[in-house]
Amino acid sequence: MVRFLLALCVVVTHSPGSTIFGFTMMNGITAVQCFYVISGFLITMILNERPEYQSLGNFYLSRYLRLWPVYILVAGLTLFFFQQPTFFSQLPALVNWPTYVWVLFSNLTILFQDWFVFLKFNNGSLSFTPAFEALTGPQPYWFELIPQAWTLGIELTFYAIAPFVCRRWWGAVGLLLFGLCVRLVVGMYIPTNGAWLYRFAPSEMMMFGAGAVAYFVGTIVCPRLPRTTVALGSIAILCFIYLSFCDDSALNPMFEGLSGGGTSYKLKLVNYPVLLLLACTVPALFYVTRNIRLDRMLGEMSYPIYISHIFVFSLINTYLPASWQKGNALYVLSVIIVSCGMVIFITAPIDRYRRHLSSPAPLVLGTKVPA
């Protein structure tokens, strides 16, 4: 349920006027960082409780298959419907062949998608830029087939290091502190927000680290205090249902008694109380929902929703009359329907193969978890 709502927050954030039926939802920045916390928790859990993931090959293959099939379908459809002239005419005229190959490689594999906003075109080559939003003319980020896939680049960075830092509590704490230190340095020495706000992978390791630390705390607390855990998880679910339907204008008054009104300028964090609430309650959330099939199904839809929503919006905006687009209801409903189809015809078959890499052994915090 929580992952589904967070995905909807991103969808609505990217809709015209950032509304649905005139209502706004929690901003996409906070929703994305909440996903990082949840990912840190789940990945740490499977690394510690799935013996087959002692094999780096099994772990990396399983995680990549979790992301790539849905991604490449949406990327391919985007290229076919909207981006053929861009990739086969405009891009080759702008860059040299190594740069062209790199852009194509990243779009095909997901790798380095988060780098696009830190690079600029310089005489046909790529060079570093600290503020992509200040650039004019065609830039690398124009050539991402799925613009929001930069988050997957950050996710893959976490996957790459997770087996080495998330198997012990002190590794998880180290990841959290590393990300915290990076965010402090960025907050002190980089005046602009832009890409540094929540697209810089080293600073986002704080979110993954928070989720990883939450797992180790949960293994101690949840089995010993099951009733308290259920109560906390149930309250947390209600809180996130409410918070998901609150935009910044509603959240800020709630946090007005806090320093920065819920925004930490030193850490470049928006709505940090929401992130803190999730980090403190994610073990209880999982404990409460671990046997609820509907929650599992909704959670499975969150990734396809996130990956497909801009493509679906482009289709609607291009091919359907404007009168059909009022209120964004058709857009949001279409995203959900498309995502259901991808879960049934892509995610489910791939997961049947991925199960060969994982065992059905029960986990400490629950009976089953997406491998």
Results as ranks from 00 to 15, higher is better:
10 V>N: 05
24 T>F: 05
29 I>M: 02
35 F>W: 02
37 V>R: 05
47 L>N: 08
62 S>T: 15
62 S>E: 07
66 R>A: 13
66 R>C: 12
77 L>P: 08
87 F>Y: 14
105 F>Y: 12
109 T>Q: 07
111 L>F: 15
117 V>Q: 15
118 F>K: 08
132 F>K: 09
140 P>R: 11
145 L>H: 06
160 A>H: 03
171 G>M: 06
182 V>Q: 12
185 V>Q: 03
186 V>N: 07
194 G>S: 14
197 L>G: 05
202 P>S: 05
214 A>I: 02
223 P>Y: 11
229 T>A: 03
234 S>T: 15
241 I>T: 12
242 Y>D: 13
244 S>W: 08
244 S>D: 10
248 D>S: 09
248 D>V: 01
255 F>Q: 07
261 G>Y: 04
264 S>L: 04
267 L>T: 04
268 K>N: 01
270 V>P: 02
277 L>I: 03
278 L>E: 04
282 V>R: 01
286 F>L: 01
296 R>C: 03
303 Y>W: 04
313 F>G: 12
318 T>K: 14
319 Y>N: 10
319 Y>P: 08
332 V>E: 06
338 V>K: 04
349 P>I: 05
349 P>M: 09
350 I>R: 09
352 R>C: 10
355 R>V: 00
358 S>L: 03
363 L>G: 11
368 K>F: 03
